[in-house]
């Protein structure tokens, strides 16, 4: 369950990065549709956070330690909303690039999460 979520969230983050990168290449700021995309990715990360905590509560142990696992889960959840708010403050193509960078960062976090969980 968690592995599937990690994969889906990582791919969604990359798709978001590509989409916002495309907007930036056309010199556009982030628009409503981009924010809906960010919301979708954020919800995926939130579901992942909840599922991860439920797994821990059931007594399952991540390979590389519970503290690091929870820290990465929280980081993954906060990543896209933070980038989204910054793109609200920067209504140029650079706001789009910031969200694109956020998508790449989230994808990297998902790869690390997969390792930490030991999938």
């Amino acid at each position: 369950m968690l592995d599937v979520l990690t994969l889906v969230t990582g791919l969604a983050a990359l798709a978001l990065a590509a989409w916002c990168g495309f907007a930036a290449s056309r010199d556009q700021p982030t628009k409503d549709w981009h924010f809906i995309g960010m919301a979708v990715v954020s919800v995926l990360a939130l579901v992942q956070l909840v599922v991860g905590i439920v797994q821990l509560a059931r007594g399952e142990e991540p390979d590389q330690g519970t503290t690091i696992f929870v820290a990465y889960l929280i980081g993954a959840f906060a990543c896209i909303p933070a980038a989204g708010f910054m793109s609200l403050a920067e209504r140029t193509r650079w706001g789009s690039i910031t969200v694109a960078a956020g998508g790449v960062v989230l994808a990297v976090l998902e790869v690390r999460l997969y390792d930490i969980w030991g999938g």
């Binding site: 820290a71 933070a82 920067e90």
Partner: peptide
């Protein structure tokens, strides 16, 4: 200082702050 490309810099620096501080906090305490 954070208009245009500066915003991207702040974001990347913010990520590095979270990464470096949380990593060292965990490692130093454990």
């Amino acid at each position: 200082l954070i208009s245009g490309p500066g915003m991207l810099l702040v974001w990347l620096y913010g990520v590095m702050v979270v990464g470096a501080v949380s990593r060292s906090a965990v490692q130093i305490s454990t």
